[in-house]
């Protein structure tokens, strides 16, 4: 008996023989071209509509804003990815009255117990999308995937200069097709569901809170 693969392709090729495929030209969606400020504003508004806390902060001030936000909450820890510029900024300046900084420095098999018990995680982002309001993340060896998912609070740092008009623009100008990472993510808010009577509720399986610091 032939393999499933052979049978499926035999079926497919037989179907293709029937012909009659009409393929219209693939046009483009209406373009969106916003100024830098408009991109920041739009992303902020749209993400706030989805219950994200968004702060536009100065490059020399984001760390203070972050610390202030952490002090307002009672959190048992902040997990981060060591070895990033973000880590380099956090580690030397951490203070005792802040939730302890916990590096994600082991594989999940060893780190799972701790990770599932930490209240907050912080990540960098690769960029943002103004059109729909979303963060772009490419988790990697230094900043693992679960940092932005398991802790109940996710804090993300976004450079204002990396906010694109659209997802397509981000993808095309960074030539994603030439090399996709293990995991690329768009995140537009804290985890949510409307599966019961379509009532929108935030914080189902992923983070209950998403805090974005846009560094302008």
């Amino acid at each position: 008996m032939s393999s499933a693969r052979e049978r499926v392709f035999a079926n497919l090729h037989a179907a293709m023989q029937r012909g009659g495929f009409k393929v219209p030209e693939t046009g483009t969606p209406l373009p969106l071209t916003l100024s830098r400020q408009e991109r920041i504003d739009r992303l902020k508004t749209l993400m706030e509509n989805m219950h994200t806390e968004v702060y536009v902060v100065k490059a020399d001030d984001w760390l203070n804003v972050l610390k202030e936000l952490l002090r307002q909450r009672s959190l048992n820890g902040l997990v981060y990815g060591p070895g990033t510029p973000l880590a380099a900024a956090l580690e030397p300046s951490w203070e005792n009255d802040l939730p302890p900084l916990i590096p994600y420095n082991e594989e999940i098999e060893q780190f799972k117990d701790r990770l599932f018990a930490i209240d907050a995680g912080i990540t960098t982002t690769r960029g943002g999308i103004a059109e729909t309001g979303a963060l772009i993340l490419w988790p990697d060896a230094r900043e693992p995937r679960l940092l932005s998912l398991v802790p109940a609070v996710h804090i993300a740092l976004l450079q204002a200069d990396t906010i694109y008009n659209t997802f397509a623009e981000a993808m095309n100008s960074e030539r994603w097709q030439e090399g996709m990472p293990t995991n690329a993510l768009l995140i537009s808010g804290p985890s949510k569901t409307a599966d019961i009577e379509l009532v929108l509720t935030f914080g189902v399986h992923g983070p209950k809170e998403l805090i974005v610091l846009i560094v302008d």
Partner: peptide, 15 residues
């Protein structure tokens, strides 16, 4: 929705 909370693109297992 203009976009869902997550758009998850997976290209490989753990490297």
């Amino acid at each position: 929705q203009m976009i869902t909370t997550y758009f998850n693109m997976i290209t490989s297992p753990r490297k």
